[in-house]
């Protein structure tokens, strides 16, 4: 039986008085890919950022309710520890432009003041780049700047940077929206590999991507979690008419 790794209980998020995520209850199974979809402004990214406590970094942003990681309330944990355990990859590839590929991968350790022997760092770099299917492409140019890579490679480098911290959960906020179809396909293939070791939560506007890569899909509308089910079920016979209208493009 699949165990739950992330659980939201009555989770609400606000920007000032604006109630953007409304009483969300959801359980994310371990080693699953969960897609979060919905129209712009539905609260999906805010919900994602609430999972690793990035929402609270925005001035005026507040939240209520609970988010659990392995049955532990993340809002009672140190936020840095939460973000070590729950990594995040953003829409646009954002490698540190002045750092080499090598240093980009281990940037999380450096920024957190964690000192490692060279051999250990080498191992982490190779392992992380291998996990994102980038090692063979960059192993001879590890000292080059990360910004010299193509968009798709940069995004995989960012995923490698997140993976290097050995998180349990990876959050992706529209990770391929800035990539061409070939790079998108490579990253999507990567999701299938990554889920062997991590739990992936992906916010996407691309419904076909949600259908292709995810095991389960959550549909948000106006801050509410309208439907959460197996992806196959959602895309063949959604139970809520709002989900059906959204995925069939009949949303007004």
């Amino acid at each position: 039986m699949e165990s739950t790794i992330v659980k939201a209980v009555n989770y609400n998020a606000y920007f000032g008085d604006n109630h953007v995520v409304k009483n969300v209850n959801i359980e994310i199974p371990r080693n699953n890919v969960v897609a979060v979809m919905g129209p712009s402004g539905c609260g999906k990214t805010t919900f994602l950022r609430g999972i690793n406590r990035m929402h609270e970094l925005i001035p005026g942003a507040t939240s209520t309710g609970q988010i659990f990681l392995n049955n532990e309330d993340v809002y009672e944990m140190h936020p840095i520890f939460v973000r070590l355990k729950i990594g995040m990859v953003f829409q646009r590839p954002n490698p540190f432009p002045n750092l080499s590929i090598y240093d980009n991968v281990i940037a999380g350790y450096k920024l957190n003041g964690i000192k490692l022997p060279k051999a250990e760092k080498d191992k982490i770099v190779e392992q992380s780049l291998t996990r994102v299917a980038l090692w063979n492409e960059v192993k001879d140019s590890l000292t080059k700047k990360g910004s010299f890579l193509s968009g798709g490679q940069q995004q995989r480098l960012c995923i490698a940077r997140a993976v290097a911290m050995e998180p349990e959960v990876l959050l992706f906020d529209e990770p391929t929206s800035a990539l061409d179809p070939i790079s998108t396909s490579t990253v999507e293939e990567l999701f299938h590999e990554l889920k062997k070791n991590y739990t992936l939560i992906i916010v996407t506007h691309n419904m076909q991507q949600a259908a292709r890569v995810s095991d389960k899909t959550a549909f948000f509308y106006m801050g509410e979690l309208v439907e959460y089910d197996e992806t196959k079920q959602m895309f063949t016979n959604p139970s809520d008419i709002r989900t059906q209208n959204y995925i069939t493009g009949r949303f007004s």
Partner: peptide, 9 residues
């Protein structure tokens, strides 16, 4: 169009 749900059925 990659139809889904009722359209796919």
């Amino acid at each position: 169009y990659c139809p889904v749900a009722v359209d796919l059925r």
